[in-house]
């Protein structure tokens, strides 16, 4: 086997004790095992190697070897990544897995190569869900007038405006205070984040909307990747796949537990009916049209077909 001694810096944004940190550890262990201890992963969390954007630029320039981060921040590099920001694209994790791990997911990932990044696998951040202090959101009309913190990203801002909410873009670091002081009424994030950020202390209603699926993506610097032997590349890819399977299981288990915890902490939880989700999806057709135009009609169609196939394949 053609494997050299290598030290790989693997940066991520959350803490060591998060689902991201646990999966990074699994990846590191798998690489070490498969390479006979020759390839070592130095996993560095808590954004100590910089923000997602900073790490991306370092990977492209060859100054850092690996990272895992949000696909949404990659839109500035590869516009096709915006496809995963589509609201109500997937109904459940199974559909997401099938599409992301399938040929079209790979195709989007491969678009990164011309920009100096190699995508290995998608991890799961989770379905985003809505919390607020005004009312339990059971139908489309309930969104009206809720002052909602959204990510600083045009698609999300436009989507929630279309649904009738007052979309207020705020950095995540300022979100808790903004909720506590009622600067905004609500926010939307995966269960794990809602729990770990203690939003239940300042939010009353939790609506299971599953309105967007947020993937993470494991990246390698292409400059670095091209210098690796086939065997070394295989070690990284295989370990990444193992970490992915672990990460999704771990994240989903954590999400289920988080939802139960949030209930126990006193949040009023309700589920958005699939009919109402459908109405929201219809209302967002203009957003979808613009996403389709941005990523290219053919890719849009491919993804929709893949989703349909995954849906019928159960």
């Amino acid at each position: 086997q053609d494997i050299k001694n290598r030290l790989i810096r693997f940066g991520y944004g959350l803490n060591e004790v998060s689902n991201q940190g646990r999966a990074a550890k699994v990846f590191a262990d798998e690489v070490e095992k498969a390479s006979g201890g020759k390839m070592k992963i130095r996993a560095i969390g808590a954004a100590a190697l910089g923000s997602d954007v900073q790490m991306q630029q370092a990977l492209i320039g060859g100054a850092q070897e690996m990272m895992v981060g949000s696909t949404a921040t990659l839109v500035g590099i590869t516009k096709e990544m915006a496809i995963w920001d589509t609201p109500f694209l997937f109904n459940n994790g199974k559909e997401a897995d099938a599409v992301l791990d399938g040929p079209v997911g790979q195709k989007v990932m491969d678009k990164l190569q011309e920009k100096g990044l190699v995508g290995l696998v998608y991890w799961e951040n989770g379905f985003r869900n809505l919390t607020n202090n005004k009312r339990a959101v059971t139908k489309l009309e309930d969104m009206e007038g809720i002052k909602l913190r959204v990510m600083q990203n045009n698609v999300f801002i436009d989507s929630f405006k279309t649904l009738g909410a007052n979309a207020v873009p705020l950095p995540f670091s300022e979100l808790f205070t903004a909720l506590e002081t009622k600067t905004v009424d609500g926010q939307e994030n995966p269960y794990n984040t809602i729990l770990s950020s203690k939003f239940y202390e300042v939010q009353k209603y939790l609506t299971v909307t599953n309105h967007v699926y947020s993937p993470w993506i494991v990246l390698v610097s292409k400059k670095y990747w091209d210098g690796l032997s086939k065997d070394e590349q295989k070690v990284l890819l295989d370990a990444a796949k193992k970490s992915r399977d672990f990460e999704r299981k771990d994240t989903r288990a954590e999400a289920d537990k988080a939802l139960a915890d949030l209930r126990a902490k006193g949040m009023q939880v309700n589920e958005l009916s699939s009919a109402e989700a459908g109405r929201m999806r219809d209302k967002l057709s203009a957003i979808n049209t613009s996403i389709a135009a941005n990523v290219g009609e053919s890719l849009w169609k491919e993804v929709q077909d893949a989703v349909a196939q995954a849906r019928t394949a159960k």
Binding site: L7, R9, G50, S51, Q54, Q57, A58, G61, G62, A63, Q64, P171
Partner: peptide, 19 residues
């Protein structure tokens, strides 16, 4: 053994590129 001038430039900028 991680010498790369980009890391210097990037982090100098990141030091003040902050809201």
């Amino acid at each position: 053994d991680f010498f790369d001038a980009q890391l210097l430039a990037q982090n100098v900028q990141a030091g003040f590129d902050s809201f």
